[in-house]
């Protein structure tokens, strides 16, 4: 019984990891590609880690809960890196299938000013 649950968790985790990467390879613009790895892959690795937790806890060497730490870490860091990547993409004005709100793009430093150093940099 336990083995069935474990196998199901492992297969589910691997499947989600695969689907996340498939999204990365298959979707058409950067912003939609961002969704695959941040969500599907996080859950995939999450269920693999739960499987590992159950496996090592039931081998009779005491509880093994430290996989929770990796899961927690991934759930905290995945959104942060996704947000930063999206911000960098907006900054670089990547091609998008959706209409980008003008304010978000306008906030990026003006391309023209980049070559000419501003007053501050000259002073330094």
């Amino acid at each position: 019984m336990l083995e069935v649950i474990l196998s199901a968790l492992i297969l589910l985790g691997a499947l989600f990891t695969f689907i996340g990467s498939l999204g990365l390879a298959r979707l058409e613009d950067f912003y939609t590609r961002l969704h695959g790895p941040t969500k599907a892959t996080t859950l995939g690795v999450g269920s693999l880690l739960i499987a590992s937790m159950v496996y090592f806890s039931t081998r009779g060497e005491g509880l093994s809960l430290h996989e929770l730490l990796v899961t927690l870490f991934l759930f905290i860091t995945a959104p942060v890196s996704a947000h930063l990547l999206a911000k960098a993409a907006l900054h670089l004005r990547l091609r998008s299938l959706a209409v980008v709100p003008p304010r978000a793009e306008a906030s990026a430093p003006q391309q023209a000013n980049r070559d000419a150093p501003s007053d501050e940099t000259v002073q330094r």
Binding site: V45, L48, S52
Partner: peptide
């Protein structure tokens, strides 16, 4: 085609490596 795509791919590779190591552990 762009730099963010490549960074995203690298990030995905890291996460996949975690998955692979956990599998190897089992």
């Amino acid at each position: 085609p762009d730099q963010p795509d490549r960074i995203l791919a690298l990030d995905t590779l890291y996460v996949n490596t975690v998955a692979l190591l956990v599998l190897l552990g089992i």
